[in-house]
Write a protein that binds this DNA or RNA. Structure first.
Lengths: 191, 191
DNA sequence: TTGATTTATTGACAATCGTCAATGAACTTA
DNA sequence: TAAGTTCATTGACGATTGTCAATAAATCAA
């Protein structure tokens, strides 16, 4: 399992033995059970994560209702950037949708990695560029498409999420209520 | 004007003379007139930008209507990440809201900078972390707040944008029609 | 300053969406 | 299997929003 992370990194950088060993020693893999939290509102984020298997959901708690903003899957990096980089209390929760295997990059470890192996900066740049591209796309979807179109986009590009995640979480992720999503689905079927 | 970019970088990295000269020589400052485009839909993004003065608007063209997704201001980096990093046609436009002074980081120049001064990777990481934090926040606003709340947030945090930008662009940025924003404003006044 | 153009507001109406409550379906657990 | 729990669907209704058209206000250019 560990080497899935290494494998991912190797796509962009030819790691040497020293680097690989350092990663294996300093980046633990933890098993997170369904519903378990990696980060809660108000906590300082002390790490970012890499999803080896499973799904991590990011959400906000608004008036007692969980509003999902993102699903992180296999080979995705997960971070509450504001809390992690500024070391301020997190506004969101990170929670496992199902039992997941997660690589934990502690903030101290990250500093050590970057100090000892500066070329890892390249990796973080690549990872972040990817993420920025995804977020820009996501924001554009909110501004340019209605809920039905956003749902159809999900059906087309991430059908597995629809199988693994309760519909009420998909609904808030699309920015609508669960009832509205249910009606959107009915309308699509009948057309 | 050039040294505003240098000054920004100096906040994070103590640049030496060689680095400063390299930047001055290789990162031109261009004057962009109001309404002028830095990037159009369908084009390959060959550069990213740094706003020295002015405002750059990012938008999509949907059924003939411009849907704004972002306003970049002084000291902001501007990039269509997908087009720039993957070198594929851009989905969005980048256009000056008013006459602006823009530093242009050509893709070739960026490669040269990073090769010659690897510690600039650190800078790109810091810039991107900031941006990711902003985008995460923005997505959360779409999911957790209604249009009125998003408008009030703008009034509180970016009042200058409301003075400089036509209301119909603010409207699509908030994800509503210009008429709806007008009514939101009336409602707020009367309360 | 005046006229032309652009931008913002308002009204009317239809479409969409959120909320609350009830029902039905699916999944758990004993 | 049966009962309990969670999740998805549906109906009713009110609130919000989009659209189209008209008007008012603001901006720009001659």
């Amino acid at each position: 399992m560990e080497n899935q992370l290494i494998k991912y990194f190797q796509k962009y950088l030819d790691l040497n033995q020293e680097e690989i060993e350092f990663l294996i020693e300093n980046v633990p893999i933890v098993e997170v059970r369904k519903e378990e939290a990696l980060l809660k509102e108000g906590e300082l984020s002390s790490a970012f994560y890499f999803v080896i298997t499973g799904i991590i959901r990011m959400f906000y708690l608004v008036d007692g209702v969980e509003k999902t903003t993102f699903f992180y899957e296999e080979n995705d990096f997960v971070s509450s950037y504001e809390s992690f980089t500024k070391q301020i209390p997190s506004k969101h929760y990170l929670q496992a949708v199902k039992n997941s295997s997660i690589a934990v990059f502690d903030i101290q470890v990250v500093a050590k990695i970057l100090k000892r192996f500066p070329r890892f900066e390249l990796l973080s740049r690549i990872v972040m560029e990817k993420e920025l591209s995804i977020y820009q796309d996501m924001i554009s979807h909110f501004v340019t498409r209605n809920a039905t179109q956003r749902y159809l986009n999900l059906v087309e590009h991430k059908p597995h999420l629809l199988r693994e995640i309760p519909q009420y979480d998909i609904a808030t992720y699309l920015g609508v209520s669960p009832e509205t999503l249910s009606r959107i689905r009915r309308k699509i079927k009948s057309s």
